[in-house]
Design a binder for these strands. Sequence first.
DNA 1: ATATCGTACAACCAAATGGTTGTAGATAAG
DNA 2: CTTATCTACAACCATTTGGTTGTACGATAT
Lengths: 120, 120
Amino acid sequence: MVVDKLSKHLSNAEIDRIFQALADATRRDIVARVTAGEYSVSGLAALYTMSFAAVQKHVAVLERASLVTKEKRGREQIVRGNHEGLQKARHLLDQLETIWRQRADRIADILAEDDEKDLP
Amino acid sequence: MVVDKLSKHLSNAEIDRIFQALADATRRDIVARVTAGEYSVSGLAALYTMSFAAVQKHVAVLERASLVTKEKRGREQIVRGNHEGLQKARHLLDQLETIWRQRADRIADILAEDDEKDLP
DNA sequence: ATATCGTACAACCAAATGGTTGTAGATAAG
DNA sequence: CTTATCTACAACCATTTGGTTGTACGATAT
């Protein structure tokens, strides 16, 4: 199987986990919220109609993807955005964007060459 | 259930499809390849050890996520990167990045305020 | 001391995923 | 015409996913 590594620092498995973690609206909402402030797991669970255990699982998925961290404070578990993980994700997305833009640039170049042929 | 819409133009279902499509190394490889050139489905299938049908399914997932288009040419089906879809994905990722960066900036501001308090 | 709160975790379930093989229909090549 | 190629699609299978309920346990409040 030929699968290019998109990053020297992120394994394909890590990238899989990041994208899969973000492929759910509830989890994206959790990321947005804990990136803008602190929430306990039950504090998060109160925001959604699903069960506490379901939210707990969503947080676990985000944690495995390094997008979020948990820290025990008293009897609560505080969830925060993991800036290192988020930065990794951002870097990864930059790389993907670069590949796509290179393609766009190549097309632009080809079109530019055609234009030159039309010059006097 | 409270789930913020991250975009006026992309539904949560569309975003789900985009991230999930990218949550597989083979599919990311396909996106990279068809973004850099043209491939038939069988041309793609030749690159991987899995069956033709499996690759066909991966392409279908990418197509449903609007990251790729198929066009019939003779008996072949040509797969290309869908620039509109890719741009949507890029825009979406920019928005996520903005949210994360705003958080970082807010932290920087808070730290800056603390520094000011230490001034003479 | 006891009840309550926040969490962890197991067991279970339905549906989706990622893969397989097999069959069938167009299209191209001999 | 016959054969080989490319694609589509169905049926099946194992595993994962997203959800549930129930139980147990440490921390907190009354």
